[in-house]
Design a protein around this nucleic acid. Structure first.
Length: 111
DNA sequence: TGCATGACCAGAC
DNA sequence: CGTCTGGCCATGC
């Protein structure tokens, strides 16, 4: 929601989707981009990198197509990224999670 | 208005 | 497996 920001329509859509990811699951940048209707995963990554809603938006539940975590995680670095996932019960090996186990299907989400 | 940037992706080799 | 290339498009200067 646009609490006190006026110019972040696109990024805000990203945040809205990310907030709907259930605990213990992850989604890929491309999947978010897909349901937003443009297919540009880079913009999704950029949006989360700036993530102004740090604790509200669970940005650590977003990984790339390989299941790898963000190299330059905005809220503390890749180690924090991994720790937050482990805190939710996910296995993180070599900064990577198993998409076959934890991938959440966002195609059923509404925006 | 134009140009560079980026938590990405798919294909080629 | 790994590396490289081209494309993607919102954002900011």
């Amino acid at each position: 929601m646009a609490f006190y920001q006026i110019t972040m329509n696109y990024y805000e859509k990203v945040y809205e989707v990310v907030k709907k990811i259930p605990k213990g699951k992850v989604v890929r940048y491309g999947d978010i981009a897909n349901i937003l209707g443009h297919g540009n995963a880079r913009v999704v990554g950029t949006a989360l990198h700036k993530n102004p809603y740090a604790p509200i938006v669970p940005c650590h539940r977003v990984v790339n197509r390989e299941g790898k975590l963000a190299k330059t995680f905005g809220a503390g670095g890749i180690e924090i990224h991994a720790e937050r996932l482990r805190a939710e019960g996910l296995e993180v090996n070599d900064n990577m999670v198993d998409l076959n186990k934890y991938l959440f299907d966002v195609s059923g989400l509404k925006i």
